[in-house]
Amino acid sequence: MTISLTRRRTAPRPPAIQPTAGAGSRQWVGYAFLCPALLLFVLFVAGPFVAAIVLSLYRWDMLTPAQFAGVGNFTAMFGDPLLYRSLANTFVFALASLVTHLVGGLLLALGVNRLKNKVLSYFVRTSLFFPFVISWAAVALLWKYVLDPSFGLVTYYLGRLGLDTPNWFNDPSWALPSIIGIDFWHTIGFTFVIMLAGLQTVPNTLLEAARLDGANAWQTLWHVTIPMMSPTIFFAAVITFLGAFQIFDPIQIITPQGGPDNSTMSVVMYLYQKGFQSFQVGYASAVSLLVFAVMMVVTLLQFWGSRRWVHQ
């Protein structure tokens, strides 16, 4: 037996597969399949990224020749209070979005996963996902009507209950929370579906073993389900943060000037205003690189932190 094992360990490796006639052409087929995606990536991601780096070194108003500015656009960012404000708003929005989506998505997935009635289960899944397929423009207008301070449904029914409603989008205390709420309604379906998919990959054997060992529902969730779902939760966390940090559409439609007292000014909206309204394209490019850097750092931190809690 030992000999046999030793023989197996020391057995010579089979000869490496040598390229044969036709291997080159098969490689080209592979590259050909890659080409469309690569072309799109270069055209719409890598190319503009390089262009942004170049533009950030210039002062350019789009219509007259650009002037080299060195790092002037970057140093100008340090003394720009509105940039700080927009970054702070964006972080608040992104963190709120992250927490509400992860917790909300997980709870919804857990709830729906327990439904025994298949028809009801499919109905709830569809209902929860449905807002996500509506365009942001439609969602924003819909909620503008719902929360209208004079005629909105919410205003009307709360008024019937004798409650005063705030002017949701014109009160600096309420404008950003309102947008956070609308964003939650619109995009929770996506997080929910991811969580549900992750939940359904948790092996039943582990859940049954936990139950046999006497674990209650909470212990099973905390010690089995969530650890097994940790790659999914991690993915949802990364995607949610990156999406939230680039928030633009609802803010532009609902509070087009950045809200009362700039309370909803997000950093992407700010760079849009700088680039396409103030014609400071170089500065806006510098801000866009800052946005990229922030997102990259946060994402790297997430990856670094994931080693401690994401199940391998």
């Binding site: 190319g47 790659p231 993915f235 992407v268 946005v291």
Partner: peptide, 18 residues
């Protein structure tokens, strides 16, 4: 999942520079 997450970060920059 990690790669998908990382790729989602780029468009923010691309939008402006396009």
């Amino acid at each position: 999942l990690q790669m998908l997450g990382g790729a989602a970060a780029l468009p923010a920059v691309g939008g402006l520079a396009a």
